[in-house]
Structures are given as C-alpha cells and as structure tokens.
Design a protein around this nucleic acid. Structure first.
Length: 423
RNA sequence: GUGAGCGUAGCCUAGUGGUUUAAGGCGCCAGGUUGUGGCCCUGGAGAUCGUGGGUUCAAAUCCCACCGUUCACCCCA
C-alpha cells in the first residue's frame, strides 16, 4: 500500500454514516428549534484570524495550527476552531445590521496538529452555536440549554455541566495578579509545566493535575472573590436562569478554558464514562473577540462540541440510532442482449424514483442473486434471453421467495405501488 | 514535544528460535449439471510475518533502529 490516511485523520466509512447523519440531523433540528441559522465558513482562513483571537500562549496557536503559504504568498491556516471564523463572517457580511442578537450554528471539520489519542484527532468535526450581539445572561443560559438538549435528545446521559466565570478585562487582571502572587510563594513546588504557565498563562495553573500543584491550587485565591459588580451580577443571573430552566450545573471555580478570548461565563459538559477523553461540549462568552477583529465592541456567547467524541460516547452508551429501512432492488441479467435491456429498465425505474443496484460483470445468475442477497435487496429483477424476446422481466421477492414474470411497465408499477412495500 | 504498549492475508486470531513449503475462523471468488440467493458441502485466491540492520548453522519467534498504530502527558471538541 502506497498511501494511508494522514496521521490523526480517518475515513468515515459507509457503515459509520448513519451515526454521522443522526448526530448532524439532531444538531440541525435542535438549532432550528431555537432559531439558529446555519453558517458555513471556509476550511482555511488567514492565519492571523486565529493567531490574533485565540492568541499566543495557547497551544492551539503556538504549536497546533496547520499553517501554509499559498502560491500568492498568503499565510493561511486550516480552521483551528469555529468561533473566530463565525465572528469574521459576522463582520464581513455586516450582520451587525441585522436585528441583534444574531444566532448562528455550524458543523464542519477542524484541524489541529497534535498527537492523536482517544477523542482527539488532527482532523475532527465540530458542531457549534454562537449568539452574537447581546450580552444578556439569558443567552448564556440559552446556549447551555441548547448544548444540553442536544446531548439529551441524542440519548446521552448528561453527567455534569461545569460552570465558572473568569471575569472581564476589568476584573480578570486583578485576579491574575493575585494568582501569580500566590503561586510565586510556592514556585519550588510547581511542576515544570506550571512554571511555564505562571508566566504565560496563569489561569491554566488551576487545572494542573500534578498533586503538588493541586495543593497549591487548593489554597489559591478564587476568581469569584475578584469579579467586578457587573460580572458578578451577570454570573448570578446566568445561574438563576439555569435554575429556572431546571438545568443542573456544578460550580467549578477552577474551570478555565484554553482559548484566550473567553470572558465571564465558561462551561463544559461531560457525559457518563467519557471523562477520559475530555469534554463533549465546551464554550463560553467572548465579549472582546469581535472588537479584536476590528468591529465595534460586540458581546457574544457560544459553544462547540466534538462530533467524534459524541459518536464514540453514543456507542459506548450502546445507544440505538433510528434507521429508516430502505427498499432496494437488484437488477440481474444473463447475456449481452439482456444486459442492455436490464440497463434500460434500471434507468427507467430510477427515473420513477425506485432505487436499483445493477449487476456488473459476467457472473452466473446464482452469483448475482447471492450478491443481491448480501446487499440486502428486497427484490431482484431477472432478465435473460426469454425475457428479452418477450419484452418482460422476472420480479422476484427476495423475502417471500415468490416471483412472477411481468411486462416492463408492470414491474415499474409493482415496485412503486404501495402493495409491494414490505417495510 | 515526552512516556508506555502493540505491529502475522480485507478483518479477528494461532504460532514465541528448527517437521512453517506460516495455520484457523470471518469475509471474498467459484462450483455442488440445464436461468435463481440466504443454510450446508467442496475448492480457490489472498501474507515479502510493519521496514531495515544485527545475533545464530537456523528468526514471524532474540537484539537495535526507524516507521506506523494505540493509550497517556501537554492541550483541547
């Protein structure tokens, strides 16, 4: 074999497609229910879009972006995450002139150059929702509600919704300072990663898994004590609305998210048994992002979910997915004359909306029917010398074993008629 | 980028230094008389045992390197 799918990518084979279809259709259905509209953004963008918004100090920009130069010398990057492109499109198409907020959703591939492992791939697919243009805390709750409804409607038991507020640019810096001061006192105990975090991304210090670092985190100052009045009110309102919607959540004062643009509300959703591969949904508010992209200050909230993780979770949950039985007909023939007649009849049937799989090659009738069987065909049409001369065809019901010789138009009528629908 | 496990036909697995010209199951193909599937029977195709080097009289089997893959860390969906 000369080539394999690149590391961390995979083919989504026919037998996987029902899962993908199911998840994407559920996502779409839920979005419609909440009045969100679909937006597709390009698979690559100017690399600056991600570099500016997601920002340095985060792995996703520092070492995980697929960056390349096109023939015109433009520096481009494969879509590293979904939110920044949505905001770019919001600005580019003047969506700030639409009634605010604008509710959008997307489904598409995302690329990150990292070592693959359970639940993480170099190409994966995200479904996400974004509400742009309104800072109302009901929208934070709405977005969490959507994510939860989505998982529940798929049949996934939602284990926990983790919630936190990381403040805004007024109050967060004060907290970060306090955090740094606290950690500096214990610098001799920190793991090497945390030594780096202390300088580059202090918020992330909180969720280090090293036990010595966790001890430091235990006694560290809490963001909740540093929120400015506006952020405090906002966060309280979010919680209040979640309670009103009877959405259970857990406060997690150590929850911070990896992307720099988050402000105020951040959240993650996990489901049973899949904690190892991380969150199924992650999101939050990003009130400064649009401004960073050159727009007017515009608040927004959203979330993203990983479709691969969701499907894997569904499978381990042994969830059943609804599948619609599909009636298929196999077209068998014997001889060159009959081959032509079969092709014509197949074509005619398809024009009438009847799915037909045509036999190929020079196989025996036995072999053709064996194939029809393994393809799960409900009917086989058989055309040989006899049928060619009489302008007829044999219609065989593969389930009941009954067959009869019919004229070509009778075959079409029989297959399109409701009387032959056996499933 | 770091660490650990694993790499035998399309898939699953046996074989762990010499009757191996590498075995079995699933799948695939063909046949079991004249134009008919699913079960059964018979036969067939399909593997440079991940790649390269080394140890040995002898290696799929031991050693090393590389590659791939899985899992974990980092980080994230």
């Amino acid at each position: 074999m000369l080539y394999k799918a690149p590391r961390g990518t995979s083919d989504i084979l026919p037998q996987e497609q029902p899962w993908w279809k199911y998840v994407q259709e559920e996502a779409t259905r839920i979005c419609l229910l909440y009045g969100y509209q679909r937006l597709n953004t390009p698979i690559f963008e100017d690399s600056g879009l991600f570099a500016r918004t997601v920002a340095g100090g985060t792995d996703i920009v520092d070492k995980e972006m697929y960056v390349f130069h096109d023939r015109g010398g433009q520096k481009l990057a494969l879509r590293a995450e979904g939110t920044a492109p949505v905001c770019r499109a919001y600005l580019e198409h003047g969506m700030f002139n639409l009634p605010q907020p604008v509710r959008l959703y997307y489904i598409g591939p995302t690329f990150r150059y990292e070592r693959p492992q359970a639940g993480r791939y170099r190409q994966h697919h995200q479904f996400g929702c974004e509400v742009v243009g309104d800072s109302d805390p009901t929208l934070d709750a709405e977005v969490i509600d959507i994510a939860r409804s989505f998982l529940l409607s798929l049949g996934l038991p939602v284990l926990s919704i983790l919630l936190n507020s990381i403040g805004c640019r007024l109050c967060q810096p004060t907290y970060v300072e306090a955090l740094k001061r606290h950690y500096s006192n214990y610098s001799d105990r920190l793991c090497p990663d945390c030594e780096v975090r202390l300088v580059r991304n202090p918020l992330r210090l909180l969720d280090c898994k090293e036990s010595s670092c966790q001890e430091v985190a235990e006694t560290s100052p809490r963001i909740s004590d540093y929120l400015c009045p506006d952020c405090q009110n906002h966060f309280q309102a979010v919680q209040q609305y979640l309670e009103a919607l009877a959405i259970p959540f857990e406060m997690d004062y150590r929850l911070v998210r990896g992307l720099d643009y988050y402000t105020r509300t951040v959240f993650e959703i996990q489901t049973q048994g899949e904690e190892r591969q991380g969150a199924l949904v992650g999101g939050g508010r990003y009130d400064n992002l649009i401004e960073q992209l050159g727009g007017k200050p515009t608040p927004a909230v959203g979330f993203a979910s990983g479709i691969e993780r969701i499907i894997s979770s569904l499978k381990s949950q042994q969830a059943d997915i609804p599948h619609k039985p599909r009636r298929t007909t196999f077209m068998a023939f014997m001889g060159t004359e009959a081959r032509i007649a079969a092709m014509k009849l197949a074509s005619q049937l398809r024009s009438a909306g009847i799915p037909v799989i045509a036999a190929s090659g020079d196989r025996s009738l036995k072999s053709q029917l064996r194939q029809a069987n393994s393809l799960g065909a409900d009917y086989a049409i058989i055309i040989g010398e006899r049928e060619v001369t009489t302008g007829s065809a044999v219609l065989r019901d593969m389930v009941s074993n009954k067959q009869e010789t019919l004229t070509l138009s009778e075959v079409a009528a029989a297959l399109s008629g409701p009387t032959t629908a056996n499933n």
